[in-house]
Amino acid sequence: MLELTVGGWVLAVIAAASVGLAKGGLAMVGMISVPVLSLVMSPVQAAGLMLPIYVVSDVGGLLAFRRNFDMRVLATALPGALAGIGIGWAGAHVVPVDGVTFIVGAVGTIFALNALIRPPLKDERRSPSYARGTGWGLLSGYTSFVSHAGAPPWQVYVQPLRLSALTYAGTTTWFFAVCNWVKLIPYAALGQLSPGNLRAAAVLMPVALLSVWAGLRLVKIIPEALFYKLITWGLLAVSLRLIWQALA
């Protein structure tokens, strides 16, 4: 089992809960999982600890959205995503831990600032494109490999497609479920699925699964705009702290 302080386990519970809340309908909340855990361990270890929790949490989503997804969107984005995961794997021994910490902090900061200051999307609808899908899919796959933070590039590609809410949720669930299952191979090869990480993940999985149920409830009662504003500011604060930590 991992040797964490009480405060460290509190952060681990928060990270696991964020994954469950994301799978329960509060999308993007999972973005904070690795940055939060990186405050008490290396981001490489944090990503390894979180991956089994993501994989287990994905199962419920796959069952729920087994018929609601857009195959053309997946076909245009998944090849790039798999290439991005491969690039992350190939560069894993090249980028030092401080470099990974900086990347995690930078991704979180860019996403948070983009969410806070970006103008509203235009009403025009785009069609799936292999060029855009491959580019944004590659970036999503790489950031997903590094810190399970592939959602922002994915949203940049998918939101202008104007999918129905159900199809959007299902396509997103299938995209990241495939990415997470594929990531098991390089994570295992790199030793990120260590016995200590797997035992800690098993302890935290009930938290994530309960949080899926909580997310389904909370999404109906909490003002969505306010909730995401708070999450985004929290992500920005944690990400800036990680950048400072990497540079120091």
Rank of each mutant, 00 (worst) to 15 (best):
L49P: 14
L49Q: 05
L49N: 05
L51A: 09
P52G: 07
P52A: 12
I53A: 00
I53T: 06
Y54A: 02
Y54Q: 05
S57K: 02
S57G: 14
D58V: 14
D58C: 13
D58F: 08
V59Y: 05
G61F: 10
L62D: 02
L62N: 06
L63M: 13
L63T: 12
R67K: 14
R67F: 06
N68H: 15
N68A: 15
F69L: 12
D70W: 05
D70N: 15
M71E: 13
R72P: 05
V73G: 02
V73A: 10
V73T: 14
L74R: 10
A75I: 10
A75Y: 00
T76A: 08
T76R: 00
T76Y: 01
A77P: 04
A77R: 00
G80Q: 04
G80T: 11
A81P: 00
A81I: 01
A81H: 03
A83G: 06
G84I: 02
G84A: 09
I85C: 08
G86M: 08
G88C: 11
G88P: 10
G88Y: 10
G91Q: 04
A92N: 12
A92P: 07
A92L: 06
H93A: 15
V94N: 00
P96S: 03
P96Q: 03
V97N: 06
V97Y: 01
V97M: 03
V97H: 03
G99S: 04
G99E: 01
G99N: 05
V100G: 00
T101G: 02
T101W: 02
F102G: 09
I103Q: 03
A106E: 08
A106N: 06
G108Q: 08
T109M: 00
I110A: 13
I110D: 03
I110M: 09
F111H: 11
F111T: 04
F111P: 05
A112F: 05
A112Y: 06
L113W: 05
L113M: 13
N114Y: 13
N114C: 08
N114Q: 12
A115W: 11
A115G: 09
L116T: 10
L116W: 02
L116C: 11
L116Q: 11
I117K: 06
R118P: 03
P119Y: 11
P120M: 09
P120N: 08
P120V: 14
P120F: 12
L121W: 09
E124S: 14
E124D: 14
R126N: 14
R126D: 14
R126T: 11
P128C: 08
Y130V: 11
A131W: 09
R132H: 11
G133V: 10
W136R: 01
W136N: 05
G137A: 07
G137F: 07
L138W: 08
S140M: 10
G141V: 03
G141S: 14
G141W: 07
G141K: 09
Y142E: 07
Y142S: 05
Y142C: 01
T143H: 02
S144N: 13
S144T: 10
S147D: 00
S147H: 03
H148V: 01
A149G: 03
A149E: 03
A149V: 00
G150R: 03
P152F: 04
P152N: 07
P152D: 00
P153D: 04
P153H: 04
Q155M: 09
V156K: 07
Q159A: 15
Q159K: 15
Q159F: 10
P160E: 09
L161I: 01
R162D: 07
R162G: 00
R162H: 12
R162Y: 01
S164R: 11
A165P: 01
L166Y: 02
L166A: 15
T167W: 04
